[in-house]
Design a protein around this nucleic acid. Structure first.
Length: 360
DNA sequence: AAGAAAATCAACCGCAAGACG
DNA sequence: TCGTCTTGCGGTTGATTTTCT
């Protein structure tokens, strides 16, 4: 048995809409609103399926639609958001007032994608297509600009998320103030605060080797190591990069109830990164958490220190208070260590989007 | 000026998720 | 819990327009 059609297609018109049809649809919606799209065509006297009517209204007839050329700012926003969200056009459209997802999708496919490709940037990953050292200076400059744009977008979303979380917890007034870790005391934080996950931002962080995992566990350390000590972690991680993300997206706060670890998976033979998987550590053992003092990792080129994580009795851990040598993947060979150290400052300080932004 | 090629974008299609009985 | 219906999303198509030769 095949799938039932969305509507009875016999006798229904397809193809471009005529002005008369537009008029009928607009008049009906103005009078009755858009309730059931399935029933609308018959009531409005249109020989179209409901789906077609909906599409026509949403993408063309809606009075608040902005048409015409995209501004530079809009272009930049699309690129930034695409770097974070991928082909989630509706989510991207939510950040561009009065633009439709279809229009943005078309604009991306016809303009922006090509532009990035020309610049030697993979429009899917937003990363340079080939080894950075094989590129000329002009391309490097462009790549640095695009990477900067990408980071700005991450920053926007992190700030946004941060505001939303604070707003949810403490009310809208506090959300406009900068976060002070010292303020997050037991007496003002609800116990076991549930912080909504935000996978969009986590995805954004996929492109960043935030903390590089050592090839083997440092057996001299008594530190709880979620990569090795967690019973939920069963895969062989020895050749992969791992990075921890606080599930509430605020680098100064880690939700005890849910801490996420990203695992970059590499091809065995080529060592090429093929994907990132996220693992959620739900309710890690409190005894273990209380033992956490410092985690220091090193690899061939750098040492990464993360001074950590002491559990407050509120149910939150305050941590990530000192984070050194954060390495952005695209910046690895481009920027010096000073720039790397500024990574989170950039993320946290350059955000401009309104707090009521609907992406999350 | 005309035909070909490329670009654009409205519209369609199938799928998935959520609502509802 | 399951099946059906509805809506929304993203990929794709194809008609039209623009640019190139």
């Amino acid at each position: 048995m095949g799938r039932s059609p969305c509507c009875d297609k016999v006798g229904l018109k397809k193809g471009p809409w005529t002005p008369e049809e537009d008029q009928k649809l607009m008049a009906f919606i103005e009078k009755y609103g858009c309730g059931s799209w399935r029933a609308l065509p018959a009531k409005a006297g249109l020989k179209r399926c409901g789906k077609s009517c909906r599409l026509r209204w949403i993408n063309y007839l809606r009075p608040d639609i902005k048409r015409g050329k995209f501004s530079l700012e809009e272009e930049q926003t699309i690129i930034q958001l695409h770097a974070l969200l991928g082909n989630r056009w509706s989510a991207i459209a939510a950040h561009l007032p009065n633009r439709t997802d279809n229009e943005i999708k078309n604009y991306w496919n016809t303009h922006l994608k090509k532009r990035l490709t020309k610049m030697g940037i993979d429009p899917t990953t937003h990363k340079p297509k080939t080894n950075i050292f094989g590129k000329d200076a002009a391309n490097l400059s462009h790549m640095a600009q695009w990477e900067n744009a990408r980071l700005e977008a991450e920053a926007r979303l992190v700030r946004e998320s941060k505001k939303q979380i604070i707003s949810n917890q403490f009310g809208p007034n506090l959300a406009t103030k900068p976060i002070s870790h010292g303020n997050l005391q037991r007496n003002i934080l609800p116990l076991q605060t549930k912080i909504p996950p935000c996978l969009d931002v986590l995805k954004a962080w996929q492109g960043t080797n935030w903390i590089t995992k050592p090839k083997t566990k440092d057996m001299t350390s008594s530190v709880f190591d979620p990569f090795f000590d967690s019973p939920t972690s069963t895969s062989n991680l020895s050749n992969n990069n791992l990075f921890m993300v606080p599930n509430n997206n605020i680098p100064g706060l880690v939700d005890v109830n849910s801490c996420l670890v990203g695992e970059s998976i590499f091809m065995e033979n080529t060592k090429e990164e093929v994907q990132t998987e996220w693992k959620c550590f739900d309710k890690p053992n409190n005894e273990l958490l209380s033992q956490i003092n410092d985690i220091s990792y090193s690899n061939d080129s750098s040492t990464y220190n993360m001074s950590i994580l002491h559990q407050s009795s509120s149910g939150l851990i305050q941590g990530f208070t000192h984070l050194e040598n954060i390495v952005g993947s695209c910046q690895d060979n481009l920027e010096d260590d000073n720039n790397n150290n500024n990574y989170w400052n950039t993320i946290l300080n350059s955000c401009t989007l309104p707090a009521d932004s609907p992406v999350f």
